[in-house]
Design a protein around this nucleic acid. Structure first.
Lengths: 181, 181
DNA sequence: GTCTATACTTCGATAGAC
DNA sequence: GTCTATCGAAGTATAGAC
């Protein structure tokens, strides 16, 4: 499957550039310059700019879907813990890609090829909230989810995994303290 | 100060559009169409597209700076609580603007006019972490900060303020639980 | 103050030589 | 497989009529 080096190089550079500047903020010129080829070469390997984006996102999206499918059989608390750890691991493996999946300005994700991701993110959010329907609990899950994605993108720390899991569990598992101050 | 209605209308529409699609993803055509005027009219009221962006961001940036300046005299825990509540209030007043200030893809913020914001966000993050230098604690503060900004942008709930403050305090003030599960 | 018309640039994409 | 050259569309911005 690792056939053409240029093709893989394009996907790698594109991932960095899209994550750094967004889809609209990244031009074929930008990618070509960093790869060291021409725009025409990009469009020989891929049908369009959108095709580059889609193929670069595909592995992360697939693993994200697989992750979400694994919690149905678990009870609320077990699923929550598994989701937190599994999602942190996924984010650390696909930082740039996941950050793009969670990018609100990417109207791209509402297209047919990726709209399957929207219910998945909602499902994951639900599992993060231990399947609670309490609005404040659901909101806390959204905050943690969004925070993890945003922070992980430009960190390289070795203790990152444990720190992210730690803050997630502290925010979501710890009982709500009495708000007396 | 509320002089020309068209000018204010442009700023309002621009804020929505920039927050929804990003700076590069928003064209003068988009803004003009929603305002109901021509592109030339936009550029009569503002020197450039960047000038629209900058002026739209200015009030939020100014209040953000004022907020950050108010914690120096407080002790760590008092500053932390004040920062959490003050920042949530600021975000709720300027959802779209703050989300743009925290947008990593906006290379705009590295320009002279806005680079004063970068140390401020680091300061705020430090205060969120109760001025701890522990990496995990600092990281938790970054997660909460980013999560609040991201989540607040498209929520309209009445209990939003309390829910955001709640999750922030739970994640940052609650002592770290023993990780035995 | 707002418009139409237009200048100039950059974009994504195609054609054709090598 | 990669290039140069080029196209048409869309981008920001300007000029000048009203």
């Amino acid at each position: 499957m690792v056939r053409t080096s240029t093709r893989d190089e394009i996907l790698s550079v594109a991932a960095e550039q899209f994550a750094h500047s967004g889809f609209k903020g990244t031009s074929l010129q930008d990618i070509a310059a960093r790869v060291g080829c021409s725009k025409a070469t990009l469009l020989y390997h891929f049908a369009s700019k959108e095709a580059i984006f889609a193929e670069m996102l595909a592995p992360a999206a697939r693993e994200f879907a697989e992750l979400s499918a694994g919690f149905a059989a678990l009870d609320d608390r077990a699923a929550q813990a598994a989701a937190i750890e599994g999602f942190v691991d996924l984010v650390l493996r696909y930082r740039r890609e996941i950050s793009l999946i969670y990018d609100g300005t990417a109207q791209f994700l509402q297209e047919p090829a990726f709209e399957f991701l929207l219910p998945l993110t909602e499902d994951l959010c639900s599992v993060f909230a231990a399947r609670s329907t309490d609005p404040a609990t659901r909101l806390a899950a959204e905050v943690v989810l969004a925070g993890i994605v945003t922070v992980a993108i430009d960190k390289d720390d070795e203790g990152l995994r444990e720190a992210l899991i730690g803050v997630a569990k502290r925010a979501l598992i710890t009982p709500i303290p009495h708000d007396k101050d």
